[in-house]
Nucleic acid binder design. Structure first.
Lengths: 167, 167
DNA sequence: TATTGTTATACTCTATAACTATA
DNA sequence: TATAGTTATAGAGTATAACAATA
């Protein structure tokens, strides 16, 4: 997470000391790194995810688990393989997640109607309830994670981000 | 990485099949996830970083190593502790990075002028050359990572991202 | 022959506790 | 007493190879 411990950011009231700054003043030059898309995207993502983790803790859901649950909710009968493609997860790494959600009684694995190898994923009644509450929490979190942005700016930001990673 | 294997994205030419889609058509509904800031920020960050990793491989630099090297280049004499704060890295995790850069002859650790516990970090001549080339590569990468965006959109995106994680 | 779900496994990243030497 | 750098270590996340069952 590493959130509540960042006493950085150039204090505005810092009376411009001439040249030699021998004191413990954190007047570091990070301007170049802050000009890079990857650096900014990663820092922003970690910041939002830190808040996500805190708010989702009561539901026992980490980001990927929420994504999987939400994907199943909106696509009943989806297979593991499709879930992997959609979320860019490797199949071996999804196995444990699915197993965990299954053991918690949140999802149900049914035999696939046409493909004997695959299995369709569905939410249980309990899973539907939890996903519904979690989704409302995630939606409410949006404004808080980007409290420095106007709603229009937030929409613009998300649209630009999608243009970066889609195709 | 997980880049060269994403045959997702709703194909435009897909003739709208009525209702029952039993074929292996990946018409998954990911619209809700794509409405979330955290999801979009993470996907975009991973996409940019994947390209970064590829382009920086010739220099033997991973994102964090590049960040550390660049921070030292622009702030000669910076301490490990300051580096940790600026990049949101935990001290134990920086030790190995510094040690590696030192053993590669890219940085030099000098005794801190006033604090006997600390040590100032500096680039060697070789480190300066490598950082310079890597920085030019990173700058050139910007446009390619966000080829779907105009230069103005890219600037706007980075400004919005900074507003999310700063303060 | 190719694909789905799976196991086993390795490698990286991130996090906590505790030590030493200096302040 | 607090801080800088460090060690050791645990836990999460991410990656590859290989297998059985089915297509």
């Amino acid at each position: 997470m590493r959130s509540p411990s960042k006493p950085n950011a150039p204090k505005q009231g810092a009376a411009a000391t001439p040249a030699q700054v021998t004191t413990v003043e954190h007047t570091l030059d990070t301007s170049y790194l802050e000009s890079l898309l990857g650096y900014n995207a990663r820092r922003a993502a970690l910041s939002v995810i830190a808040l996500f983790l805190k708010r989702m803790a009561p539901f026992g859901l980490k980001p990927v688990e929420f994504s999987v649950l939400t994907l199943i909710a909106h696509n009943p009968g989806i297979t593991s393989r499709q879930t992997c493609s959609a979320l860019d997860i490797l199949p071996p790494n999804l196995v444990g997640i699915i197993k965990s959600l299954d053991q918690r009684g949140l999802i149900i694995r049914k035999a696939h109607p046409t493909d004997g190898r695959a299995q369709g994923l569905h939410l249980s009644a309990q899973g539907r309830r939890l996903q519904n509450e979690a989704q409302m929490t995630a939606t409410a979190l949006e404004g808080d994670a980007a409290h420095a942005l106007t709603p229009a700016e937030l929409d613009k930001l998300k649209a630009l981000l999608r243009k970066v990673y889609q195709n």
